[in-house]
Design a binder for these strands. Structure first.
Lengths: 229, 229
DNA sequence: CCAAAAGTGTTGGTTTTACACCCATGG
DNA sequence: CCATGGGTGTAAAACCAACACTTTTGG
């Protein structure tokens, strides 16, 4: 960083935006709000807002997400900064984007801003405000990488889950079918899961064993789950 | 992004910083400047500075790099935003970091700011200003990934190069030795190189074939060069 | 003819893929 | 006893890691 004229240079608006993914009926969805004021009034956008002086970028993203959608207590991973000169018609705004993968049963409260937050399947996204279309595209690439290299899956699954649920999650995120036997063998050999003594029963068939993640916080995996994209 | 009180919120300083890598005598080096003014006067830092109203983040990083070090015309890859509240003692500054891999024979001009830019081997880095130590650590991880998944190597190599030069580059970046036969087989099978009819001769031994990258611009590779870290 | 780096294949072990049937349960 | 999804093993193919000698040149 230069030492030159600190006072005048570089002042601009800094925002954060969150691309929040979930799986609904087997399809990957994204949480969007509808803008009630210009610019892009009536169009959809990913939730976000301006960073305050005294909060970190991640804290700002969490706060805005809660304010606009009611979603809280989730892990956000930074995916990059978007800073094209004309990305916001109001003036120069730099946005730092984050991604998350959460359970769809977080309550989407009607918010103070009267923005309504809704889930949209990723292959039926509406036209998006700002450069949010590009941000989402990058976020999806990033998510496909994340799910194979970290335990981010634990954010979306119930504490205890079946291997079939886990596999369906991977299939939805990666957008392709996986072989049941190979998937189970690999995920178990990696040692990131722990078998519980409980089972899950639903419908007229054999009950499924329930598993938990060994690491309950977001953490990188030792090896990559070699499923690729 | 919220629609609320656009005028007042989110205003802060935005900077860019560039972690520029090169190989000097087989060792991975980083380009640092010495700060001539407070804060962190006399300490080393990665080159960077504030973003101007009318330039993109990448353009700002390129401009600052040229101003401070003389290095120009290089590809910069964004690696993330650093926004901790107290990362800059002057006040709130968000910094967007970039990385590059360049040839060491870019001239390091004595700059207008009288900052001198010098190369430092990565295992002999001085104490660094701001959070630049952390930024460099992330940049190195990122570089090790980049070199296996993109043709970023073409930035540092001469247009035509030998396979031995390419292999030494990989070894320096990854910090480990690679098997000559396996390396050559894989890199050729990937099809990112094109053999030329020329050879390179130096010293009393068999001349080496010269190769060029098929893609002359930064581009992701179809497959990953499976060397890992 | 010596030194030096360029160039080149094979083998054994490991990993990955593809693939089909039996099990436990509720109705 | 039927329908449903849970659970399991194996063989062939692909891939990866380890390894040493011949070639071409200049001095």
């Amino acid at each position: 960083m230069g030492s030159d004229n600190y006072a005048s240079e570089g002042l601009m608006k800094v925002a954060v935006d969150a691309v929040v993914f979930s799986i609904i009926k087997g399809d990957l969805n994204i949480l969007l709000i509808t803008r009630k004021y210009p610019p892009f009034k009536g169009q959809c956008a990913i939730p976000g807002g301006f960073v305050r002086k005294e909060e970190s970028l991640e804290a700002a993203a969490k706060r805005e997400l809660t304010e606009e959608t009611g979603v809280k207590d989730i892990y956000l991973k930074q995916i990059g900064a978007y800073g094209d000169v004309n990305r916001d018609p109001r003036g120069r705004v730099i946005s730092i984007a984050f991604l998350a993968l959460i359970s769809p049963d977080h309550d989407l409260k009607a918010t103070s801003d009267a923005l309504d937050a809704k889930w949209y399947p990723i292959d039926e996204l509406p036209k998006l405000a700002f450069d949010h279309g590009a941000i989402i595209k990058h976020a999806l690439q990033d998510l496909r990488f994340e799910i194979q290299t970290t335990n981010i899956a634990h954010q979306i699954l119930p504490k205890r889950f079946t291997l079939t649920q886990l596999q369906q999650l991977y299939e939805s995120v990666l957008g392709k079918r996986l072989d049941k036997r190979n998937f189970r063998r690999r995920v178990l050999e990696m040692g990131v899961l722990k078998e519980t003594s409980e089972t899950f029963m639903e419908g007229a068939h054999r009950p499924a064993k329930l598993y938990v993640f060994r690491e309950q916080k977001y953490a990188p995996l030792k090896e990559r789950l070699q499923v690729f994209v």
